[in-house]
Nucleic acid binder design. Structure first.
Lengths: 206, 206
DNA sequence: GTGTTGATTGAACGATCAATCAAGTCACGT
DNA sequence: ACGTGACTTGATTGATCGTTCAATCAACAC
């Protein structure tokens, strides 16, 4: 099987869905941009939605090498890795005049009644992202209170990332992104302070 | 001017944009649902986008009576008003099988390159929402630390609302919404605790 | 009763959409 | 040399899109 053409289609669709969204991207957009002809596309994909599925599978399968590895290069501190991840989205926003937000988040809100297969892939992509952040929180160990619900906090951080992107893009002002991250910073700082406090109290008792 | 037909169009479009989004809602969708004929619609609106503008203006002009007044009926505590507001969105999600999220948020992410007029209206709607929450925070007075940035926290709360809706809808699980709100609750509790602590310390010094 | 205005009707338009398909090309096994 | 199957080409399809417009209607003015 000729993987090259298929891959070219997926990469082009990936880019276009990211910038324009799914519905605003026409098949002919994908064709002209990727220099592929309609027959070839429909040779590999039954329909437009299957291209979307392939794109979402690409995100799913490559989150480690395409997202985490890149964002976390040179950042060892687990808490700072979270902010490095957020900063990656900030950079995309700022350097593209707010065109590049979160591709998954945009698709998740754009597709109001998605096919189960599409919805599951969106959910899996969110879950993988959350899992990555959860890993950071877990690696932070006793810097966080022992009773911290790592998964809930990781979901909370995804929430903040998505909401911050939404507001920054709407206002076309990166300050909206930064302020949200700053509040998150105070929240995590407070968690760390509480963990230290707990440990001190524990030390006194012994 | 016959306001009745115009209003019928706006209300129908409002509903359809909320459920299906802007692009997935065709003019003929609006026409058939509202029992209005194309000529009438184009008599009042130059084009589809102007219907969207009218819808966004409706949200902008009616946020107090249509949103805040309804959510805050019987809730006097300013902090609880914030959670009552969030609970309104929760109810819409839960009682509609996740069809009704935040109409503004969905449109904001769906329209990747919106007309300036549309983008400004989206931004104004966000700003009004934030201002409503900011008012609650201000009314909370010294229950929050004196150095609290009310606007930043209000934007943070909008962020959480939007992100929580996004995740709950994607996973079709209201638990994702609830967990986010719960983390927000712990954050605001911490702010209140800090304010009390500050006041105690202030009292000792006197 | 004649003219004016705002509102309504619904057929029709051109553009664009996703999708199809018959014909053609090419690589490779026999 | 030949056949086979994977892949490519690009014209074409029918449906749907947003939009237009000439015709009609109802209400009121002169």
């Amino acid at each position: 099987m000729n993987t090259a053409t298929r891959e070219k289609i997926v990469q082009t669709a990936l880019e276009l869905f990211w910038v324009k969204g799914y519905q605003s991207t026409s098949i002919s957009d994908i064709l002209s941009r990727s220099q592929v002809h309609s027959g070839s596309l429909y040779h590999f994909f039954p329909g437009k939605q299957d291209v979307l599925v392939a794109v979402l599978e690409w995100y799913r399968d490559g989150i480690d090498e395409n997202l985490f590895a890149h964002a976390w290069a040179g950042v060892d501190d687990p808490i700072e890795r979270i902010f490095a991840l957020l900063n990656g989205y900030r950079m995309h926003l700022a350097s593209s005049d707010f065109m590049y937000g979160c591709p998954i988040g945009s698709l998740a809100l754009e597709l109001h009644e998605p096919d189960p297969k599409v919805r599951d892939l969106l959910a899996v992509n969110f879950a993988n992202w959350v899992e990555g952040v959860e890993r950071c929180l877990h690696e932070a160990g006793d810097r966080l209170p022992a009773d911290t619900d790592h998964k809930a906090v990781a979901e909370f951080i995804l929430t903040i990332m998505e909401g911050a992107i939404m507001q920054a893009r709407t206002h076309r002002d990166i300050g909206h992104f930064d302020r949200n991250v700053e509040v998150l910073r105070t929240y995590l700082d407070a968690l760390e302070a509480k963990a230290r406090l707990n440990q001190d109290q524990q030390g006194e008792k012994l």
